[in-house]
């Protein structure tokens, strides 16, 4: 069983018991971006700090950065969304995940939101 957290940068984080965290963008983020045509993912083994820009999504119209919601080392990337970026639109919070981090400091999780907290944050964005 994994626990899911959300960032105010509109990423989701699913944390496994072994400290491996799967990261993607939220359904809200993919909706706001529109048709996604290109994804650039971080290199395997790269150490990323919380808040660091480490992936890029391009929609037809604009480019956006994806920020690391936690500090860790890139352990896996989802090549499927590089090959078929529309997957992110279809299943942002599932098959359209971006990368997995081996977390350095799981304590950072406490600064993320739970689902109710994220929904409440979204409702303030009008």
């Amino acid at each position: 069983m994994s626990q899911i957290f959300y960032s105010k940068d509109h990423e989701w984080v699913a944390v496994e018991a072994d400290g491996l965290a799967t990261i993607g963008i939220t359904a809200h983020a993919q909706e706001a971006l529109g048709d996604i045509v290109f994804v650039e993912l971080p290199e395997l083994g790269r150490n990323v700090a919380k808040g660091e820009a480490c992936a890029v999504v391009e929609s037809v119209k604009a480019a956006s950065d994806v920020y690391a919601p936690l500090t860790g080392t890139v352990a896996e990337v989802n090549q499927a969304i590089v090959d078929a970026p529309a997957k992110v639109n279809e299943a942002a919070e599932g098959e359209g995940w971006f990368f997995k981090l081996r977390l350095q400091d799981p304590a950072g999780l406490t600064e993320l939101l739970d689902r109710a907290g994220y929904d409440e944050f979204l409702s303030t964005l009008a």
């Binding site: 290109f38 890029v56 391009e58 480019a63």
Partner: peptide
């Protein structure tokens, strides 16, 4: 000029 790019990443 018009420019066609290789790959999928657009240049803005």
């Amino acid at each position: 000029v018009g420019i066609k790019l290789e790959g999928r990443a657009p240049a803005r």
